[in-house]
Simulated scan of single mutants.
Amino acid sequence: MTQNDTASGFEVHGARGAFNAAFFGTMGPYIEWNVRQHKRRVFADLPPTVVEIGSGVGANLRYLRPGSTLVAIEPNIPMHRRLRAEAERRGVHLDLRDRVAERTGLPGGSVDSVISSLVLCTVTDPADVLAEIRRVLRPGGTFRFVEHVAGRSGTPTRALQRALRRPWAWTFEGCSCERDLAGLLRAAGFARVDIEPYRLHTPFIPFNTQIAGVAHA
C-alpha cells in the first residue's frame, strides 16, 4: 500500500486503476449520451461551489458553469490527470481531494450541493457515504444523483447482474449491480427524497437499471 493509499483509505490497484481511467475516458461520451437527459434534469442550476463524490475523469464538469468550483472527492489517482485536464478545458476551478467518500474531511453543514453519478455502486458502504453527505450539507442543501441499481427480482436483468457479480466487481473496482440504492436513500434521514427510476438500452445490460433524483437535507 502506498502513502496515498494510507491517506485516502483507498488502495489503487496497479492494473484496474489505469484501466478504469482509460475506459471511462474512452467510453465517457457514449455513457453520457445515454444518461444526459437525466443529468440535465437533476444537475440543473447547480450553485457556484459543488462537492462531487467520485469525480472520475470529469464527466459532470459540463453541468457546472464556467468559473464555478468543484470540490472533487476522488481517491483513484489514475483518474486525476484527465480530471484536471477536463476542469481546465471547462473553465472550472478544481479543488481535488484524494479521499474516500465516507471521510470527505469537509466541515459539517458547510455545503450547498453534493452530486454523484455511477459512484454509490462502488463505495464500500453506501449508507456510510450517505450519512457523510447529510453531515456536510447545510439545511436545505441537496444531494443530486444518477446511479445504477439492482433490477427487479425475477427479471432477466437481475439474473444477469447476479451471474456477473464477481467479474463485474473485479473489473470495475468493486462496482455492484445489486444494490437497492433507492431504499438506502429513503432510509438515510433526508427531509425529502425524489427518485425517478428508468431503464437504459445499452449492451452493458447489468448497468441498464438506473435511478436519478434529488435528496433534500
Rank of each mutant, 00 (worst) to 15 (best):
E32Q: 07
N76Q: 14
E11K: 12
G154E: 07
G91E: 03
T104P: 14
Y30P: 00
A44R: 00
F143H: 13
P206C: 12
T202G: 15
V50A: 04
A188R: 04
P48Y: 01
P197Y: 03
P66G: 09
T157A: 13
E88C: 07
Y30N: 08
V100F: 08
V149F: 07
R165K: 11
V193A: 01
T104G: 13
Q37Y: 06
P139A: 06
Y198M: 08
S116T: 15
A87H: 05
T142P: 00
F23I: 11
P203L: 12
N34L: 12
A191M: 00
L106G: 10
R166M: 08
F172S: 04
R103M: 13
F143T: 02
E74N: 07
E86K: 14
A150L: 09
I133R: 03
D125P: 09
W170Y: 06
C175K: 02
L181M: 04
R199H: 10
A131P: 11
D112K: 10
T2D: 06
L96G: 06
I205V: 15
F10L: 04
F204R: 09
N4Q: 14
E102F: 08
C177Q: 03
A217E: 07
N76C: 11
E86Q: 13
G25L: 13
Y63C: 00
L160N: 05
C177S: 05
E178D: 14
D180L: 04
E178N: 06
V71F: 03
M1G: 10
L184V: 06
S113A: 14
R138Q: 11
R97P: 04
D128W: 09
I77Q: 11
N208K: 12
E86N: 07
T209C: 14
P206N: 08
R186C: 05
R62W: 03
A59Q: 11
A131G: 13
A163F: 09
A187Y: 01
D128K: 15
A131C: 10
R179Y: 03
I77D: 00
P126W: 09
